[in-house]
């Protein structure tokens, strides 16, 4: 099924996207409010929470270029030492920028 790229078609597409996206935002809470939370469910949720981030970050590190890898490494290093997010993120960005300028020279 296709929508024509008229104003109405485009607006429909945007509203449909918005509805689908809100469904994902609210859906997890909606489902959980119908699941009794026992110790098992709680352990699942706790492990899953960090795993979401791991699953987002790992492919960036593995499939990313040298700059992305260096940035993540710098962030991890500074974070482990200082335990402050802002210097850690700054270290990551600066590393990536320096790497790209260095490589493109």
């Amino acid at each position: 099924m296709n929508l024509p790229m008229t104003l109405i078609g485009a607006l429909t597409a945007i509203v449909v996207m918005a509805l689908v996206t809100y469904l994902t935002r609210a859906g997890g809470v909606l489902v959980m409010s119908r699941v009794p939370i026992g110790p098992k469910v709680e352990r699942f949720i706790n492990a899953m929470a960090g795993s979401v981030l791991v699953a987002v970050i790992t492919p960036m590190a593995v499939h990313g270029d040298g700059a992305a890898r260096l940035a993540l490494l710098a962030t991890l290093g500074v974070m482990l030492i200082l335990r402050k997010p802002l210097p850690a993120i700054a270290a990551g960005i600066v590393s990536a920028a320096l790497w790209r300028f260095w490589v493109s020279l």
Binding site: T24, R25, A26, G27, G28, V29, V31, S33, M48, V52
Partner: peptide, 9 residues
């Protein structure tokens, strides 16, 4: 988002 929302439930 489904999982993120569930984690905050």
């Amino acid at each position: 988002h489904l999982l993120m929302g569930a984690a905050l439930y």
